[in-house]
């Protein structure tokens, strides 16, 4: 049934005190797919991420990751299934160094005892160093995350996402605060990842979405308004009305 489906949202609704943040939302993301999600403010993009990652329980509907029902799991369980998330506002651990942030994110046993007995071996170090090179923070390895600039924080959080080695990456506004060249670098990175992993990118920056050049979903009022290539949705009359026309 779920052949060819990495992520499957079916009729998902979320109601806060009468306000429908998500309204019968359905979405399918295939393995290896790179999907962009756009939509005006309050369209339900972040709520959708919250539902997938277990932060918010849906009022109705199904959320399947492969065969697994995500609505019954907590955030940690979902993350361990292989779903990684980058937040709109980059969030990391300011009291830890860049290296330590990445070390925490590195895929490894997560229990207290395992963490207590954890030894940083050569393989793990190599992975962390490779990632630091990828995100351009090698020089800052020993700096506390709290003193990084906004753009560097974006990169660090992307780095943490990579360390988790997830099957599905949920990326919320990855290029806010980045320079043009950094934005290009990010687009290339995401495209590269997408071959092996599924990636869902929420973004406001349409140029960035165009640069990704893949399938686009437009959300409005908590449900899918339009879906297709960037050219297709940009020419969709309804999309122009609610979003692009403004």
């Amino acid at each position: 049934m779920s052949e060819g489906r990495r992520l499957y949202l079916d009729g998902v609704s979320v109601v806060f005190d009468g306000f429908r943040a998500l309204n019968n939302l359905s979405l399918i993301v295939e393995p290896g797919e790179l999907r962009s999600v756009i939509g005006p403010n309050g369209a339900g993009k972040t709520t959708m991420m919250d539902v997938i990652t277990g932060k918010t329980r849906p009022t109705a509907g199904k959320v399947l990751f492969g065969e697994t029902d995500l609505t019954r799991m907590d955030e940690a369980g979902i993350a361990n299934l292989g779903i990684g998330r980058k937040f709109q506002k980059p969030t990391m651990f300011d009291a830890l160094t860049v290296f330590e942030n990445l070390e925490l994110a590195l895929k490894a046993p997560r229990g207290p005892i395992a963490c207590l007995r954890w030894k940083l071996n050569g393989e793990a170090r190599t992975r962390i160093e490779q990632t630091m090179a990828e995100i351009g923070l090698t020089e800052r390895a020993q700096d506390l995350a709290g003193i990084l600039s906004h753009g560097q924080r974006q990169w660090l959080e992307i780095g943490m996402l990579l360390m988790q080695d997830p099957e599905l990456l949920l990326v919320d506004e990855p290029v806010a605060g980045m320079t043009d060249s950094e934005t290009e670098h990010t687009a290339a990175l995401l495209v590269r990842i997408a071959g092996r992993r599924s990636v869902v990118v929420v973004e406001h920056d349409l140029e960035f979405v165009r640069a990704l050049g893949r399938r686009v979903t437009v959300l409005c009022d908590g449900s899918v308004l339009s879906e297709g290539s960037i050219d297709h949705v940009q020419n969709d009359q309804r999309v122009i009305e609610v979003y692009l026309g403004r």
Partner: peptide, 26 residues
Amino acid sequence: SKYGRVLTAIRDAESRVRFLGYNTTS
């Protein structure tokens, strides 16, 4: 240990630690 760093991370941003896959309760 890394456990200590997980604790510090929980202290500063518990929900973020959960999204990294750590069961913060335990």
